[in-house]
Simulated scan of single mutants.
Amino acid sequence: MASESPERLEPQEALSAAQRARIERNRQRARALKEARIVHRSPTDASEGIREISVGKTRALDTGGGFLLEEDVVDAPAPHAARPAPLVHRTEQPRCLECDRLFPQSYLFDTFDYSVCDECRDEEAHALVTRTEAKSEFLLQDCDLDSREPALRCVRRRNPHRARFAEMRLYVRAQVEARALAVWGSAERLQEEREARRTRRQLAEQRAAARRLRALRMDVRSSLFDRTHAPHEHRFADEVYAADAAEYSRTCLDCGHVQTYEKM
């Protein structure tokens, strides 16, 4: 293999110290940007081919299958950088509200501080509801969700219908129901308030429909009045002679006014 000619080595040797320093800075900057995107790969994730990716403030899991799984961002009084470790000592373990057994760790407890183990997690009772649904269905206000102690935890996720909208805040349905009972006192009082609001909404809709109908009738009446009685310049048709009355008449083409007269 022929060695490179001295002519090809001249450009590299001709680089100044400032140019070589600028090239080294660019290389270090590119390396730092590359390393900033890959946060870490834990031993358990490395065996499964999964690594955690961080771009800006967004965290996701690279499954290696051609897509990223977005992590839930927990909105809690104290931010959690990672899922807490399981509680080993039985004296510190919470008791499940469903089966009344102690458990070291669960998704609902770690994410929402709700003492239900993974075995008792129900798809309906422990489903996630949006903040709008929590306020409309259970008649809660922002202060009931955020200010009343203890504040309900939630997870934030991107809006699947409108990417530019704010992130959705999702709550556990069972916790929202319990908060509604605490606010309204009982399920019967909550149902009565629902019926009262439904009745008021129906009455408001009926009054609005009556106002629209009344306005429509007034518009029709005013248009008829303007067309029939408003002063205007008549446009008469050809005159007609009535032999029995010995007079002439002509009719306005716009308003139907009949003008009779005699000719001398």
Rank of each mutant, 00 (worst) to 15 (best):
residue 3 S to Q: 05
residue 6 P to W: 02
residue 7 E to Y: 10
residue 8 R to M: 10
residue 10 E to W: 14
residue 10 E to A: 15
residue 21 A to F: 00
residue 21 A to T: 00
residue 23 I to L: 14
residue 26 N to I: 14
residue 26 N to S: 14
residue 27 R to M: 03
residue 27 R to W: 01
residue 28 Q to D: 09
residue 39 V to Y: 07
residue 40 H to E: 14
residue 41 R to Q: 10
residue 41 R to N: 11
residue 42 S to F: 01
residue 43 P to D: 04
residue 46 A to R: 01
residue 58 T to M: 08
residue 60 A to M: 10
residue 62 D to H: 04
residue 67 F to N: 02
residue 69 L to M: 08
residue 78 A to V: 08
residue 78 A to H: 12
residue 79 P to Y: 05
residue 84 P to Q: 05
residue 85 A to F: 10
residue 85 A to L: 06
residue 86 P to H: 11
residue 91 T to P: 00
residue 93 Q to M: 13
residue 95 R to I: 06
residue 100 D to Q: 07
residue 101 R to T: 08
residue 104 P to W: 06
residue 106 S to N: 11
residue 106 S to W: 01
residue 109 F to C: 05
residue 110 D to C: 09
residue 114 Y to I: 01
residue 115 S to A: 14
residue 117 C to D: 15
residue 117 C to P: 15
residue 120 C to K: 09
residue 121 R to L: 08
residue 126 H to W: 01
residue 128 L to T: 02
residue 128 L to D: 03
residue 129 V to E: 03
residue 131 R to W: 02
residue 135 K to T: 09
residue 137 E to K: 09
residue 140 L to K: 05
residue 143 C to N: 07
residue 146 D to S: 09
residue 150 P to Q: 09
residue 150 P to H: 06
residue 153 R to V: 14
residue 156 R to A: 15
residue 165 F to S: 13
residue 173 R to D: 15
residue 176 V to I: 12
residue 177 E to K: 06
residue 177 E to G: 00
residue 184 W to Q: 08
residue 185 G to P: 12
residue 185 G to F: 15
residue 187 A to H: 10
residue 197 R to A: 01
residue 198 R to Q: 13
residue 201 R to P: 00
residue 202 Q to H: 06
residue 207 R to F: 09
residue 209 A to F: 05
residue 210 A to P: 00
residue 212 R to D: 06
residue 213 L to R: 15
residue 214 R to T: 06
residue 215 A to K: 01
residue 224 L to P: 00
residue 226 D to K: 07
residue 228 T to S: 12
residue 229 H to N: 07
residue 230 A to H: 08
residue 231 P to A: 15
residue 233 E to Q: 11
residue 235 R to A: 13
residue 236 F to M: 05
residue 239 E to K: 10
residue 240 V to H: 12
residue 243 A to V: 05
residue 246 A to I: 02
residue 252 C to W: 15
residue 252 C to S: 08
residue 253 L to K: 14
residue 257 H to T: 11
